[in-house]
Simulated scan of single mutants.
Amino acid sequence: MDPADLQKLVTVRMPYGKYQGRLIADLPGAYLAWFARKGFPPGQLGQLLALMLELDHNGLGRLLDPLRTR
């Protein structure tokens, strides 16, 4: 994992789907788990979704709070 990926979680928005426009860090855990079952999209988006799933699953989502811009 690249540490810059953590910053991307709070700046990159979901480009499509039910949660289009929502920050990756703000996606519901159930949606992330659905992607895990169906298969993450290729490329950077898939990597970010997988990373966010790991953070969410392990209860570490609050670690992103200091990275959010106010």
Results as ranks from 00 to 15, higher is better:
G61Q: 13
L55D: 02
E54M: 06
G39W: 05
R70N: 09
L53R: 15
F35H: 15
L64F: 01
T11W: 04
M1W: 08
R70F: 04
T69C: 01
P3C: 03
A33E: 15
A33R: 15
A33K: 15
A25D: 10
W34M: 09
G46F: 08
N58K: 13
G17V: 09
Y19H: 15
K8N: 05
F35P: 02
L51P: 02
P42V: 03
A36C: 11
T69N: 09
K8H: 01
I24Y: 00
L63S: 11
L48N: 03
G21T: 03
D2W: 02
D65F: 09
G61R: 14
L64D: 11
A36E: 15
M52G: 09
D2T: 05
P3E: 05
F40V: 02
A4Y: 08
A4I: 00
L67M: 05
A30R: 14
F40L: 05
G17K: 11
A25W: 00
G29T: 14
V10F: 00
Q20F: 05
P3Y: 10
V10M: 04
L67G: 06
W34P: 06
G61D: 12
L6E: 07
Q47G: 07
L63T: 03
L45Y: 00
G39T: 07
D65P: 07
M14Y: 05
L67I: 12
A50Y: 00
L45P: 00
G61V: 11
P28D: 13
Q7V: 09
I24T: 02
Q47I: 11
P28L: 11
G61A: 13
L27W: 12
G59N: 10
D5C: 03
A30N: 15
L6I: 00
G46H: 06
L67P: 01
D56T: 13
L55A: 09
L63E: 06
L9E: 04
A4S: 07
Q7L: 08
E54N: 11
G17F: 00
R70H: 08
P41A: 08
P28A: 13
Y19E: 12
M14Q: 14
E54I: 08
P41C: 08
G29R: 14
G43M: 08
L64V: 07
M1A: 11
K18Y: 13
R22I: 07
E54P: 06
G46D: 02
